[in-house]
């Protein structure tokens, strides 16, 4: 790792100030992706601003209407243990491994927007709102392609709000080495329609499979998606599976998520 200073502010405004001054700074969530990246010397910030000391960014809160709010610095383990919300607790309980879940945070995962990460699929399918120190960003506007988001320099995810949902389910098919999603599909049935979000499969990162949404709006059953074509033009093709295989998995997992939802 290159040399850097590590700051641990306890208030959001202090973190924002540190991230906005003239020192080249980078926010540090749980570090489960960033620290390995730093070890490879693929990043060289002058300063890391740890967000895990900010208590106001931690916690899982459900209101009576079924809305769920999760602080940006909340660990996967805490979401797994406390999120009484369809699909989300299981999703969190299967990210990485227990030690990773004890450190990794939802905000860190979303800000990184790894194309094979699980949370982006949940946020997109559940039509969640990303709350930052400056604004609120709709899920549909947040993800802007692999490792790219709507976040501005120095902007911190302080919380994520998930609206009440009728039913939801996440199906993850493991990439056998990294145990990230080779393909992950999150299906959510809202009062105003079905949303299907796919991670792991596309070179553009997480995406909504609109044809499946349309079909499921008419008939919320696995059979509804069986005959659909998955666009495979921009599918990831690598050591672990071709684009065609990923496209096939998208369909299979969507069907399974519908069945399990």
């Amino acid at each position: 790792m290159y040399e850097f200073d590590l700051e641990r502010p306890t208030r959001v405004e202090d973190a924002v100030k540190l991230l906005s001054d003239s020192v080249e700074s980078q926010p540090l969530g749980g570090g489960q992706t960033l620290i390995p990246t730093l070890k490879q010397r693929l990043a060289s910030p002058e300063r890391l601003v740890s967000l895990t000391g900010i208590d106001s960014m931690k916690g899982v809160f459900t209101d009576r209407g079924g809305t769920l709010r999760i602080g940006g610095a909340t660990t996967h383990a805490e979401v797994a243990a406390k999120a009484a919300y369809p699909g989300l607790s299981e999703l969190a309980a299967n990210i990485g491994d227990p030690a990773v879940r004890n450190r990794g945070t939802i905000g860190g995962s979303l800000a990184n927007n790894d194309p094979a990460a699980c949370y982006p699929a949940a946020v997109l399918a559940l039509n969640a709102t990303i709350g930052t120190n400056a604004r609120e960003i709709a899920a549909d506007d947040f993800f802007q392609g692999m490792f790219t988001t709507a976040l501005e320099e120095g902007e911190i995810i302080t919380n994520v709000t998930f609206p009440a949902v009728r039913t939801a389910n996440y199906q993850k098919f493991l990439q056998p080495a990294s145990r990230f999603a080779l393909v992950g599909v999150f299906v959510a049935k809202h009062d105003d329609g079905v949303r299907v979000a796919v991670t792991g499969a596309s070179n553009d990162g997480v995406f909504r499979w609109s044809a499946a949404e349309e079909a499921l709006n008419g008939d919320f059953s696995p059979d509804a998606v069986a005959g659909l074509d998955v666009p495979d033009g921009d599918m990831i093709s690598d050591l672990h599976g071709s684009g065609a295989y990923r496209a096939h998995l998208v369909k299979v997992l969507t069907g399974r998520a519908v069945a399990a939802a």
């Binding site: 590590l6 740890s50 895990t52 030690a99 450190r103």
Partner: peptide
């Protein structure tokens, strides 16, 4: 893997200052 405040964490993926 070590325990930090009772929870398992990977000591290679956490800074000492944390």
């Amino acid at each position: 893997v070590v325990h930090v405040d009772g929870e398992a964490v990977k000591a290679c993926t956490m800074f000492a200052l944390e």
